[in-house]
Design a binder for these strands. Sequence first.
DNA 1: AACCTAAATAAGAATTGTTCTTGATATGAT
DNA 2: ATCATATCAAGAACAATTCTTATTTAGGTT
Lengths: 130, 130
Amino acid sequence: MTDQRRAVYDVLMGKRDHPTAVEVFTRVRDKVPSISLATVYNCLETLADCGLAKTVTDERGPARYCPNLDEHAHFFCQSCGGVSDIPLRSRRHPEDVWEFPKSLTILRHEVSFRGVCQKCAPKTKAAKRN
Amino acid sequence: MTDQRRAVYDVLMGKRDHPTAVEVFTRVRDKVPSISLATVYNCLETLADCGLAKTVTDERGPARYCPNLDEHAHFFCQSCGGVSDIPLRSRRHPEDVWEFPKSLTILRHEVSFRGVCQKCAPKTKAAKRN
DNA sequence: AACCTAAATAAGAATTGTTCTTGATATGAT
DNA sequence: ATCATATCAAGAACAATTCTTATTTAGGTT
């Protein structure tokens, strides 16, 4: 545990959103001004490997990092780019919906939903009228 | 519909796998030797926009293109990089498993599973013994 | 407390996959 | 045939990430 890792971890836990590596970088520089972006990438990867954070990707956009360790999916707003967590229903599993071939060993899954968030819904309707 | 789009479409339909843009490019050059990679990207994007193909992404790897238009998820083998389709159980929906906030308008979803395929399972076990 | 070794860091170059720019070509309506 | 619009090829540009190298640091051992 180094100063840099501690600072990256604190930044991630301090604000429960889904920052990119660059966003973490700008936030963490307040605490450790000398930190480099490469180190932020390294620290985030280390935290993810340790199970202290999750990596989230929206198509080909920058990777984002999520401090929520519960099993959950993600929602991406097409309009504002916002990301939010979607919880699993209790006692439900992806196997309830998808038919897994027995020959496959499933180790993890990543579920992403795309659409429009509440805040953006009015804008989108207005845009459709044009 | 141009020669290039037709050729890209034929290539995608001709082999039911999940090629990257570069793989499509090398296959399609047999038919249209003068085609450029940028045009392959354009054609694939056009096909995806028309609903004739789906775009599939595995974390930060290259985008892949899928000719299977049925609703399905994807499985990525961590060992060999292979991609396969996972069908939806009949009359099941993601809402059965995840608790969608009513405030969100869900337009589409993307579900990815990761693990080890049948072919790679023995190798992986052997590797674990080391 | 000084020393040692492996691991982590900073800085910037390099890489990867994709998108953009430009001028040339082709297509379809008039 | 002419013109407007869309597509194409070629390669430059771009964004996000990873790699390389030299330096620094953590943390265990004397």
